[in-house]
Amino acid sequence: MAKTERREWNGYSLKPRKDMPEGLWTKCPGCEHMLYKSAVEKNLNVCPECDYHFRIDAETRIGYLVDEGSFEEILSDLTTSDPLDFKFRGTTYKERVKTDEKEAGAKEAIRVGKGFIKGRGIVLGVMEPNFLMGSMGYVVGEKVCAAVDKALAEKLPLVIVCCSGGARMHEGVVSLGQMAKTSAALAKFDEVGGLYICVLTDPTTGGVTASFAMLGDCLIAEPGAMIGFAGRRTIAETIKVELPEGFQTAEFMLEHGFVDMIVHRRDLRSEIARLIDYCRK
């Protein structure tokens, strides 16, 4: 009896609290510490205690990567048009897009444009995890291809920061086709000797992993990022075995030889700059 009472009373405990006031504090999913939000934000949205990398939206990411004020976005007003007329559970794809547009403050799951990293010109694409899980519809495919075209035309390195749940179901085979489309564009880019650096962040899965995310000349992963092809639940259901700890993480991918390096968020900028310097002709 005393036990339950003690659990309820959590007033002066130094142990991490389970509930938290809105806004000011946040709980780190990695170490379960209560963290002061602005301290986390100052630390590039990385937990100061355990280096857990929080998911960040495209705008923040661009801010972390490029030189201040140097990002010129292209195709920012491109929006999807529901090619399949997709309806599910009494709602529609279009409505889902509208709510996500409001919540995420983004028009699509990727933003592309030209910018500078420590004075080196790049074409940058950053995916937006809050917009329909960062999934790849045809607008994402089109924007990635446009970024490749721009990099080709201006002879700049291409950097894409992936963060996606995969192909977008609501667009059916149209979204599946974007895997082929982006890969074909990257094949052209490869032929003329363009440098393509891909940064894999949490999560990079499904159709995005199986197309442009894995085709970088250099693949950089963020620590602890979930990177894989099939979803964990699908795998668990298919083989009916519990998945090992650390399965499909960045460290797992490094161990099995599918990424070049794991780079902390604070070093990402300088690492990309260094790679560009090495590959400059």
Binding site: M179, M214, P244, F247
Partner: peptide, 26 residues
């Protein structure tokens, strides 16, 4: 569909498919 299994992930299912798309396009 491509096989969703632990070994398939370890051996790079995603990379294998991506390379096929990349190469078949040219």
């Amino acid at each position: 569909g491509a096989y969703p299994g632990i070994e398939a992930e370890e051996r790079g299912q995603a990379r294998a498919i991506a390379v096929n798309l990349f190469e078949m396009s040219r």
